[in-house]
């Protein structure tokens, strides 16, 4: 019988995978990141506070795993292109609906932002985390989340012509 933690882990997989893809853009690497996250989460499950939401906790593990792999590969030349490739999201030209175009424009504008601003925007405005949850994922103060998020959104509004 799966317990609540294991069930939560399985249910979080699609969201985790999407978050991993937002960082590395490569499905095979994203799948490895998710697998590593699951391994670390299971090993560290006694440190999870069940009164908190599971997803932000998993996001933090995943992000640390990504930094870890980037740190290790950093000394062996660039193996991973971490610059966003907005066209990767457009998988089917026939489905270039208004929504897909808008998604593409948004991703293109996001890709032009500094990484630290893009990261908080993804967590709060795309993945729906609270400021406090994003602060926990990124291991920075809530006030820093808010200032980065505000600066990032002002820049995004400018790039997308939002007035």
């Amino acid at each position: 019988m799966a317990d609540a933690f294991e069930t939560g882990l399985i249910e979080a997989l699609p969201v985790l995978r999407r978050y991993a893809l937002s960082m590395c853009r490569k499905p095979d690497i994203a799948d490895d990141l998710v697998q590593t996250t699951v391994e670390r989460a299971i090993a560290a499950r006694t440190r999870f506070d069940p009164s908190m939401r599971l997803e932000p906790w998993l996001f933090r593990i995943l992000r640390n795993a990504w930094i870890d792999s980037a740190r290790r590969s950093g000394t062996r030349g660039v193996e991973i292109d971490i610059t966003d490739a907005p066209e990767a999201a457009v998988h089917d030209g026939a489905r270039a609906t208004e929504a897909a175009l808008m998604l593409r424009q948004t991703q293109a504008a996001l890709a032009m932002l500094p990484a630290e601003q893009r990261e908080v925007i993804v967590l709060v405005c795309i993945e729906g985390l609270s400021y406090a949850e994003a602060a926990e994922v990124l291991e920075i103060p809530r006030g820093t989340v808010m200032s980065r998020l505000a600066r990032g959104r002002v820049a995004l509004a400018e790039k997308m012509g939002i007035e």
Partner: peptide
């Protein structure tokens, strides 16, 4: 805009 992008 970001919420619509997330939904799309």
């Amino acid at each position: 805009v970001l919420a619509r992008a997330a939904a799309a």
